[in-house]
Amino acid sequence: MADLTQQQWSSQMENDKDAVVLDVRTQEEVDEGYIPGAIHLDIHQGQEFIEAIKKLDANKSYYVYCRSGARSGQACSIMNQLGFEKAYNLMGGFSKWDGPSTQ
């Protein structure tokens, strides 16, 4: 797992042809706004979350975010344990995001 600043996260993602954006917040948080194109998998769903992660392509690069960066960090750690080598945590999360979003 790599913790990336907002700038590192967005510029690396823009240049990554295998980039997948993953939103691990609750549905209520997503309803308040999200990064366009993000896949929503609520980390609070426990085993359902893990099963959903297992269905993803481990060869892709995952740019993971939550509200503040804590849950997305946990999600990246889980992904690493499941064999995902390219999981990038957005430090500061969506609350600090200044890129494109839907609100």
Rank of each mutant, 00 (worst) to 15 (best):
C76G: 01
E85F: 00
L4A: 08
R67G: 03
F94R: 05
D3W: 11
A52L: 05
Q47N: 06
N80V: 04
R25Y: 09
A19S: 09
Y63A: 06
G37A: 11
K54P: 04
A38L: 09
Q81A: 12
A58G: 00
T5Y: 07
Y34H: 13
R25K: 08
E29Y: 05
S68F: 01
I53K: 02
S72M: 05
S61C: 10
Q6H: 12
S11T: 15
G73K: 12
T102L: 09
E48M: 13
E85A: 13
I39F: 09
R25D: 09
Q27P: 12
A2C: 00
K54T: 00
S10D: 07
Y65G: 04
N15I: 02
N80T: 08
Q8E: 15
Y62H: 12
G99N: 12
A38M: 11
E29M: 10
V20Q: 14
K60W: 05
E28Q: 13
L56Y: 10
V20Y: 07
Q47A: 06
M79Q: 04
S95M: 15
W9Q: 01
F84A: 06
I53S: 02
I39D: 01
E51P: 01
L82V: 07
E85M: 10
G37Q: 12
Q103P: 15
E28A: 15
I53A: 04
Y88H: 06
D3T: 13
L22Q: 05
L56P: 04
